[in-house]
């Protein structure tokens, strides 16, 4: 099947010479939720802006539903809904009016019944006649989503949908995204929260310094992220691991002063209890224990390092 969004070798250099995107290639499948994960300034928003027509890529091509976003912008943009990161709304306008405007702007015939469905789905129906400035922050964000959905897009871009949103609202937002997926909408969301990607994405693309570092099924990536290290500092250094401790994948580091145990937090049993028992049975005296989670940064560092070696 043809991908919904095809990004081929896209670069973007700003006038001041800043290279926000550096040869990005990525295919987004129809109906999936893809999380674009990366630190601030990684190029997430620039990539979305390039797909939506807000900024023009310096190099490369982007196709949405088979339409080139520059040459066939009408066909491409008609398929795309964008929820920006900032809350960009006219404060004096009423909810229903702004949503109607968005639908008309994309050339769709007036259909207040459809808009009612969207507003109800986003729990905004009661507020349809309220002015934007009377709404809470979370509701304003929903209005942005309603505006993006008003013209029935096939692809929805959510740029940091939960930045600065409290925990409860964040869960609500995730629920909304899941429902949209059930409705057949392809969703691309950017985030720098790993939990967010974990909670809703099917696939995760990691972006940093304008490059896509990896694209992976969420489950596979989470396994890697779920790895934890237990560092056991010994009172006395040892030359080799006692035979009783073999087969656990332990490593001896720092001239035999530290034993490193890697385990998976997602497993039912981490094996820590039996390890400690065996350690003391082997007569080793522990000085200190430390655990360290494999963080997103670790993966970044690993990926950037790999790329550097390959080059």
């Amino acid at each position: 099947m043809q991908p919904m969004v095809e990004i081929s070798d896209v670069s973007k250099t700003y006038k001041d010479g800043f290279r926000a995107l550096n040869g990005v290639s990525l295919d987004i499948e129809d109906g999936e939720i893809l999380a674009l994960l990366g630190p601030n300034g990684a190029g997430k928003t620039t990539l979305i802006s390039a797909i939506c027509g807000i900024t023009r890529p310096t190099d490369g091509t982007i196709r949405v539903g088979g339409h080139d976003v520059v040459a066939e912008y009408r066909g491409a943009r008609a398929l795309v809904g964008l929820v920006p990161q900032e809350i960009n709304l006219e404060p004096f306008e009423r909810v229903m009016n702004t949503v109607r405007f968005s639908r008309g702007l994309f050339g769709k015939p007036k259909d207040d019944g459809f808009l009612e469905k969207i507003l109800r789905q986003l729990s905004l129906w009661d507020k349809r006649n309220a002015r934007i400035m009377e709404l809470s922050g979370g509701m304003k964000r929903r209005v942005l989503i309603a505006k993006a959905l008003a013209h029935e897009p096939r692809v929805l871009f959510l740029d940091e949908p939960t930045a600065g949103v409290d925990v409860e609202l964040r869960r609500d937002m995730w629920e909304v995204v899941r429902e949209l997926k059930l409705g057949g909408v392809t969703i691309i969301l950017t985030t720098h929260y790993i939990e967010e990607a974990e909670a809703i994405a099917d696939r995760i693309a990691v972006i940093d310094k304008g490059r896509i570092l990896l694209v992976e099924e969420k489950d596979a990536l989470m396994t890697r992220l779920g790895q934890k290290e237990l560092r056991i500092e010994l009172q006395e250094p040892i030359e080799a691991l006692p035979g009783a401790l073999a087969g656990r994948g332990l490593q001896l580091e720092e001239d035999g002063c530290v034993i490193v145990y890697t385990y998976d937090t997602a497993e039912e049993r981490t094996g820590i209890t039996s390890l400690i028992t065996d350690l003391s049975a082997a007569g080793l005296v522990l000085r200190d224990l430390q655990t360290r989670q494999n963080s997103l940064e670790d993966i970044f560092v690993g990926l950037v390092g790999d790329k550097g070696d390959a080059a």
């Binding site: 939506c52 960009n88 994309f106």
Partner: peptide, 17 residues
């Protein structure tokens, strides 16, 4: 100017027009 100022211009730029 107002859409530029409050940021709603993004919608005009991303619309098929």
């Amino acid at each position: 100017y107002f859409p530029k100022f409050i940021g709603t211009i993004y919608e005009l730029l991303s619309a098929p027009i």
